[in-house]
Amino acid sequence: MTEVSVRPVVSSPSAKRSQLIDVDVHERADLQALVPYLEPMWRKYITDFGWQPERVLPYSQYAAGGLDRLDAKLPDGRPGGSDYDLLRRQLLDEHDIDYAVLTGWLDASALQPGWAEFKTALMSAYNDWQIADWLSRDDRLLGSVHVNAHDPIGAAREIDRIGSHPKMVQAILYIADKAFGDPYYHPIYEAIARNNLALGFHHSENAPTALGFHRYFVEWHTLVPQVFMSELVSLIFNGVFDKHPELKVFMIEGGFTYVPHLMSRADQQYKELRSEVPWVKRMPSDIIRQQVRFATQPTEEMSLTQFMRLIDWCESDELFCFSTDYPHWDFDSPTEALPQGLSEDLQRKIFVENAQNGYAKMPALRTAGQ
């Protein structure tokens, strides 16, 4: 770990950043686009029965473009992330991104259980569509293996089927209302380990707060970190990290300012109650520092001193990886999201190295002049 300091350093992300990995970019598939990749027995659920993903969140997105940036919506009404050329212009080219990890839109892990075989097949179709329509079009795009967590054996089979693809860097689970540390899901982690992938956990509108869904969107959105804390606690104390000490986990679209509190609280409980979980061999904070990364979006406004103090409390500058969450309404620009004055070394860790070190299959970055 590099020693951190709260002393301001005069520089800015826009002036000093030369490379960038974005760990959360959403491409979006129209369901009809998946039909050619489904076997005939599954196509009818979309073509004949009109299946649509269940919408759980009882709010409208309180923004001009709904879920997305208004300028990311297509003239024909399609949502942001539906068109590669627009994404390329607005994100990859405008912000000079070296690699963008696609995290998708449709994921069966966040859908209610039921029709398990169909949803497993749907994720296979999504993966094939992602490779054909996105990964093959731009060297800067990297993929996530989408699986149906409600079918762990089927999910493991899908990871083994597609996880060796050179542009797949992680398997992704969208968080809903399940504690994924449960041994029921362990076949998924075993498959991830076999294929040298990272594991991404992504925020979902299917995830309630500790008290369900509050009256207003602003309440629910404020409390998003609750579900990330719940998942990490479940993974830690159910022994997932001890069973797979090489596994790297990315917590995506949940922010990161909650991390010092979680580390402190979990450490104290482990000291007092470790006899209940004898398979956990390390302090929770050490597990987090060694095996977990947090995507920065949505970044909260803070001063340089506050940001550096947060890193100091975590006792690591290797936990945070930059993400834009394109094309969503709360998109974070790499030139504006983080405090001005970060040292060049810290910028490089957040914008590049922490993601590089977390994704075992991350390709090498270009060098100056390439």
Score class of each variant (00 low, 15 high):
residue 361 K to W: 10
residue 342 L to F: 08
residue 124 S to Y: 07
residue 329 W to Y: 14
residue 117 E to P: 00
residue 34 L to S: 04
residue 361 K to L: 05
residue 15 A to G: 03
residue 195 N to F: 03
residue 81 G to N: 06
residue 193 A to R: 09
residue 308 M to T: 08
residue 310 L to F: 11
residue 218 V to I: 14
residue 324 T to E: 01
residue 83 D to W: 12
residue 360 A to R: 15
residue 308 M to I: 01
residue 233 V to W: 13
residue 224 V to T: 12
residue 108 A to V: 02
residue 52 Q to K: 08
residue 23 V to Q: 13
residue 188 I to F: 02
residue 349 K to L: 11
residue 218 V to T: 14
residue 230 S to F: 13
residue 157 R to P: 01
residue 347 Q to I: 10
residue 48 D to V: 02
residue 361 K to E: 13
residue 15 A to H: 11
residue 368 A to W: 06
residue 156 A to R: 01
residue 12 S to L: 09
residue 152 P to Y: 00
residue 31 L to A: 10
residue 125 A to H: 12
residue 180 F to K: 03
residue 269 Q to S: 15
residue 360 A to W: 12
residue 354 N to F: 11
residue 91 L to S: 00
residue 192 I to T: 09
residue 58 P to T: 05
residue 133 D to G: 00
residue 297 Q to N: 06
residue 69 R to G: 00
residue 92 L to N: 03
residue 5 S to N: 07
residue 121 A to Y: 07
residue 231 E to P: 05
residue 330 D to H: 11
residue 174 Y to S: 12
residue 107 D to W: 04
residue 322 F to W: 07
residue 92 L to Q: 00
residue 108 A to F: 06
residue 278 P to W: 09
residue 260 P to I: 08
residue 107 D to G: 13
residue 5 S to Q: 08
residue 142 L to T: 04
residue 262 L to Y: 10
residue 188 I to D: 00
residue 49 F to D: 00
residue 307 F to V: 02
residue 217 F to D: 09
residue 300 E to Y: 02
residue 281 K to F: 10
residue 325 D to I: 02
residue 115 W to S: 09
residue 288 I to T: 07
residue 251 M to G: 04
residue 365 L to F: 11
residue 336 E to H: 13
residue 278 P to E: 10
residue 143 G to P: 01
residue 232 L to W: 07
residue 218 V to F: 11
residue 333 S to K: 10
residue 182 D to N: 09
residue 4 V to Q: 14
residue 132 A to E: 15
residue 27 E to M: 13
residue 151 D to R: 06
residue 7 R to G: 04
residue 95 H to D: 11
residue 151 D to G: 02
residue 4 V to C: 11
residue 220 W to S: 12
residue 327 P to K: 07
residue 127 N to W: 06
residue 131 I to F: 05
residue 161 R to Y: 11
residue 313 W to M: 15
residue 122 L to G: 08
residue 156 A to P: 03
residue 355 A to R: 03
residue 77 G to Y: 02
residue 79 P to R: 05
residue 110 A to I: 03
residue 240 V to C: 01
residue 98 D to W: 13
residue 53 P to F: 02
residue 270 Y to C: 07
residue 273 L to F: 15
residue 297 Q to M: 06
residue 236 I to W: 09
residue 24 D to P: 05
residue 145 V to C: 12
residue 184 Y to F: 13
residue 80 G to S: 07
residue 63 A to T: 05
residue 294 F to G: 04
residue 250 F to M: 15
residue 26 H to Y: 04
residue 20 L to N: 00
residue 222 T to P: 06
residue 136 S to N: 08
residue 90 Q to N: 13
residue 139 D to K: 15
residue 8 P to M: 08
residue 88 R to L: 10
residue 269 Q to A: 15
residue 244 H to Y: 11
residue 291 Q to L: 02
residue 58 P to K: 04
residue 123 M to F: 01
residue 24 D to E: 12
residue 124 S to R: 15
residue 114 G to K: 01
residue 142 L to A: 04
residue 231 E to D: 12
residue 262 L to T: 14
residue 123 M to S: 06
residue 56 V to R: 12
